[in-house]
Design a protein around this nucleic acid. Sequence first.
DNA 1: GTCTATAACCGGATAGAC
DNA 2: GTCTATCCGGTTATAGAC
Lengths: 246, 246
Amino acid sequence: MNLESASPTGFEATSGLTQKGEQTRARILEAALFLFMERGYDRATMREIARQAGVSLGNAYYYFRSKEHLIQGYYAQSHQDHLQACRDILEHEKNLEDRLRKVLEAKIVTSEPYHQFAGALFKTAADPSSPLSPFSPESQPTRSQATQLMAQVLDGSDVNAPDDLAAELPKLLWLYLMGVILFWIHDRSPGCARTFLLIEHTSRLVAKLIRLARNPLLRPLTHRTLEMLRDFQADDRRLTDSQDSL
Amino acid sequence: MNLESASPTGFEATSGLTQKGEQTRARILEAALFLFMERGYDRATMREIARQAGVSLGNAYYYFRSKEHLIQGYYAQSHQDHLQACRDILEHEKNLEDRLRKVLEAKIVTSEPYHQFAGALFKTAADPSSPLSPFSPESQPTRSQATQLMAQVLDGSDVNAPDDLAAELPKLLWLYLMGVILFWIHDRSPGCARTFLLIEHTSRLVAKLIRLARNPLLRPLTHRTLEMLRDFQADDRRLTDSQDSL
DNA sequence: GTCTATAACCGGATAGAC
DNA sequence: GTCTATCCGGTTATAGAC
């Protein structure tokens, strides 16, 4: 369950840290995630995280600029877990409704251990100026990975959306996923039953809409919507360039 | 620009405070809103707010349980400003597209002075455990007022939605408004031009969808969607009871 | 130059006297 | 209802060890 696996290459282009540094960093991150889960984000103090990791407080701040930055570790881990859980689904399920629903359900299931502190997490992520905002430039790598996953959901399915729509759909589905997560964060029902209900209903609805998109009656509506989306992405081109391997 | 106008009745059913208490409370709130606008939420310290209001730090906490609670004052003010700005629109505009668009635009225009600190504000509001979450029980009064406004947008318009849809639409439009605000908070374009673009496009789209809802092709879709919504509100009935005058 | 530690600072929040 | 004194935890400054 290690997040960092020290690359045994001679140099450390990604981090600029020595092996020992990497290890210390990993220990702090591990301690943080453990304590976040154990008692929630707010009540896990930096002092305690440092102590648990066996380092001083100042040292923890040497590796992580702020408490919030410790959360990035969670993002990465969460997406990896999700990918893992989706492998089977993407391989065997062909029906779009089911693909979509199961992939969304997998996201919630794999995120469940973190539910209690996801609220606090989201609190900081919601601030647009925060590097943790899912819309921030810093999140671009993770965002684009998640979008790719949605593209796979579509590609392997039994539905062939019109080309113009198909080009935008992965991004739209990612946005839909964000909405579901937003709901989940606020969901206090036992076992997050309401979120699963939401997924069940909306995934069917969304899939149906995608199927309907070829219908002549809806074509102008679809067309106008897509035009709008392209408008908005005109300015966003600054970010969509290079890309880490993460 | 006073938020509280001390009711000259003998008793204070709403607040449980004496007149002097009301005044002190109002002074603190006024100082807070002033400083929030002056230098942003984060950099306005409680100590400074207290000093500006001419009270001690502890005293400020006597009236407001936390710094976050001071934000409620902003909510109330913002909605009042919006109502004011909507009066004309609701009275003279009949076309649904235009009503909707103008009401949304009014929300953004009246909120513009607070844009810089709305991010920080939203940050705390996004936490589901916070009383400031727009979905929290504490926000119910404001939420229901805003929903009523949306009902008015529909009622006075030239569109007559099917009954089952009409019953849910105000809430849905309020949710739509929340989405627009979310976008606005993240909008860094000059004059928030992108938000206005978003409103222009989506309000037309939403209005068109409402008009389309009578179409037989879409009826089953609409019906299923509404069923889903009713499902979800089944549990929410605990909150929808009494209501402050605010 | 990379890492680690100690000692402060600052601001939100609370306790308890008056 | 109002104050003062204090706690607590995120964050920073800075000095020194490897």
